[in-house]
Design a protein around this nucleic acid. Structure first.
Length: 370
DNA sequence: ATTGCTGAAAGG
């Protein structure tokens, strides 16, 4: 029996964040750091003070990266799509964070079409309800309520869409949303990621690689969640949420309607972590990507991704190296310079100017002082 | 609070 998917998913709508756009005024620190990083000649950072008093320079005057990109961009977590964008071109992703809101209108239209196709598919399995929220705790509470309603649906054979995942990876909190999950006829848990395409053609290999990386990351996080490897403590640590803070009235109302007797975010988190670990959820068995044509909805192709954990972890470790400040960002290799053709930052890209686009020129190793 | 704050993903 195909379930009707009559379930309703709650979607939060922010109510009080409209005054957020003036966060620029404290950015003077960032901009002078940008110019400082042009002169990053030698790691000879210790200017010898005459009498040994030098270390007390405030960190922003020392120029180079004492603060990690996570801190500079004021990020408490990253999205899965941040990392997959990073997989496409790390330098472009960085420019995107520094200069937000500069997507070419033509590209934006394609994204927009894709977004509405996804929304239409989501509405096939559940309704959306708008809930006024009053705090970031509310935002997460809504996410948790959605999970609590979706897990039983999944376990009773239904299809669920937009399932939230989160977990600490390499010391950084990663947050994402799985497009679709369901059990196959054989009883395997399958993830489906829908990709819509402007033209009626399959993507290039570089794009496929990025998509494979994205779904692999979902599985990595989801598996960790159902295996109890993601803890409430870790989530609270990164998000700085207040678990004891009472939830807003409309969120509370919806929790009660769902049959959950909770008063705080902490209560809800307990329920979620119990549900995740005690519902007999398996790890994801199958990762599938479907490419469809936007205009005609024709299926262009579908691909089963083989999950290579080792390879995934290496990539993630490398990407996080940038975020935590272990290394500078890098652009694409010459082989992939074609990506610059459609990049809106091509004309300002320091990676290109700096002749950064090399393939794999071995850098003569200067002896490391030990 | 000499300061706060984030729907993620959308496609190339």
């Amino acid at each position: 029996m195909a379930e009707t998917g009559e379930e309703e998913t709650v979607s939060a709508e922010a109510s009080g964040f409209s005054d957020m756009s003036d966060s620029e005024f404290l950015d003077l620190e960032d901009s002078q750091e940008l110019s400082a990083s042009l002169s990053k000649p030698s790691p000879a950072s210790e200017l010898p003070g005459k009498d040994g008093k030098l270390i007390s320079l405030p960190k922003w005057e020392r120029g180079l990266d004492v603060s990690s990109p996570m801190e500079r961009f004021h990020l408490k977590y990253l999205c899965v799509t941040d990392l997959s964008t990073q997989n496409w071109c790390e330098q472009q992703m960085v420019y995107g964070k520094e200069l937000p809101g500069s997507v070419a209108p033509e590209k934006a239209a394609v994204l927009d079409t894709g977004a509405s196709i996804h929304l239409a598919r989501e509405l096939e399995v559940h309704d959306l309800v708008t809930i006024p929220i009053t705090s970031k705790e509310d935002t997460w509470a809504v996410k948790f309520l959605n999970m609590l309603s979706m897990i039983p649906t999944l376990q009773s054979g239904g299809h669920i869409r937009e399932f939230p995942v989160f977990g600490e990876v390499e010391g950084v909190l990663l947050v994402g949303v799985i497009d679709e999950l369901h059990y196959t006829a054989k009883g395997e848990l399958e993830l489906v990621e829908l990709k819509t395409r402007r033209g009626p053609v399959l993507p290039l290999e570089a794009q496929k690689k990025k998509d494979r990386f994205q779904v692999s990351l979902y599985k990595y996080i989801f598996d960790a969640m159902v295996q109890g490897k993601v803890t409430a403590a870790s989530l609270l640590h990164h998000t700085k949420l207040h678990p004891e803070k009472p939830l807003g009235p409309s969120v509370l109302k919806h929790a009660q309607q769902g049959g959950f007797s909770v008063t705080s975010l902490g209560d809800l988190m307990d329920l979620v972590f119990l549900s995740l670990t005690l519902s007999d959820l398996p790890v994801i068995d199958i990762l599938k990507i479907e490419y469809i044509h936007q205009e005609t909805a024709a299926l262009l192709g579908s691909e089963i991704v083989s999950f290579e954990e080792r390879e995934l972890r290496n990539k993630v470790q490398h990407y996080m190296g940038y975020w935590v400040g272990r290394r500078e960002p890098q652009g694409v290799d010459v082989e992939e310079a074609w990506k610059c053709r459609t990049c809106s930052y091509a004309d300002i890209c320091e990676w290109r100017k700096g002749g950064g686009m090399r393939s794999s020129v071995p850098v003569p190793q200067t002896k490391r002082a030990t």
